[in-house]
């Protein structure tokens, strides 16, 4: 089957389903017939752009997000929820490369570079990881975690900031949080002398940013490989494929894409599956997402 045919038969229905969740305000909802939300809109914008969508659809989604950007550059769920800053990471990633939102993206990136995680409050809790590595939190003023740090790093990488000190330090953090036996937990390694268990989604997100050919990550890659199957949750599968997937994994992804393009699938998951598909099949997908393809596939 040609790539073009695959695109029309597999991804296009998923994109159509995504578009159904678009509201007149330009934003996207978590499920059909619900109000728009900035976090969901950022994921949908990433998915649509990575799959080649242009024009009013993506610009209006970008505009919707812009309405949630604060003076300091952060993008929030609502003004009252001023601490949940993680949406800024996804918004910056989604805006990157859109000329209409160059200023928004820059403000968001500056905000990202201005904040960091904090571990000082639980020094006594027996954490083994290097607490001097700052990384990024989900919520301002709290600790850095693997997934939130990965999202911030993906935003910085898409903007070409791999040389920035904060980026370099963030990568160090991810390496430091790798479990001795392989994989990543949501953020800790050894607590009170006991090595924690890995979780597949954190393992997948960390590996999207690391050199998967490096011998130190062999156990982690092997662990994640076990999850690249249809029974895995869509969020884990999508991130896993963007971390270590190859074209050989396309049938699994396409099976899940077909299953999930229903009105009950969360927009974030559907978006991530579309992003994984574009990453595996389209050079444009990798470009929009800021994923270096060379040496990964």
């Amino acid at each position: 089957m040609s790539l073009q045919h695959r695109a029309s038969s597999v991804v296009q229905p998923a994109l159509d389903e995504l578009k159904k969740r678009r509201n007149p305000d330009g934003g996207f909802s978590l499920l059909l017939n619900n109000p728009s939300r900035p976090d969901v809109t950022a994921w949908a914008l990433l998915a649509l752009r990575s799959c080649g969508e242009t024009g009013a659809l993506v610009v209006e989604a970008g505009d919707y997000l812009k309405a949630y950007q604060q003076e300091n550059g952060s993008v929030l769920m609502a003004e009252e929820e001023s601490a949940a800053v993680w949406i800024t990471y996804v918004a910056a990633w989604a805006w990157e490369g859109m000329p209409e939102f160059e200023v928004c993206a820059k403000k968001a990136l500056n905000y990202i570079l201005s904040i960091s995680g904090n571990w000082s409050y639980i020094n006594a809790w027996g954490m083994a990881h290097d607490q001097s590595l700052k990384g990024w939190p989900w919520v301002a003023g709290t600790s850095s975690w693997v997934d939130s740090t990965a999202l911030a790093l993906l935003a910085l990488r898409s903007a070409g900031l791999e040389g920035h000190g904060r980026y370099v330090e963030g990568i160090k953090l991810l390496k430091n949080r790798e479990l001795p036996s392989g994989g990543w937990n949501c953020g800790n390694t050894i607590v009170y002398g006991t090595e924690l268990r890995p979780t597949p989604e954190s393992t997948a997100m960390a590996l999207t940013l690391l050199d998967i050919r490096n011998a130190r990550h062999v156990s982690s890659v092997q662990l994640l490989r076990q999850y690249l199957r249809p029974a895995t949750g869509p969020l884990t599968l999508a991130w896993g494929l963007m971390a270590i997937g190859t074209k050989k994994d396309l049938p699994v992804l396409e099976q899940v894409l077909v299953e999930q393009q229903r009105d009950y699938c969360q927009t974030e998951w559907l978006s991530l599956l579309c992003m994984a598909w574009s990453f595996l099949t389209l050079s444009q997908g990798a470009n929009v997402l800021g994923f270096p393809r060379e040496g990964r596939l």
Binding site: L30, L31, N34, R37, Y68, A78, G233, R262
Partner: peptide
């Protein structure tokens, strides 16, 4: 097929709830 997972997203406004 859905694995039974539902996210719900009602009532959000820009101003919050």
């Amino acid at each position: 097929k859905a694995g039974l997972v539902v996210g719900t997203g009602a009532f959000l406004t820009k101003e919050g709830v």
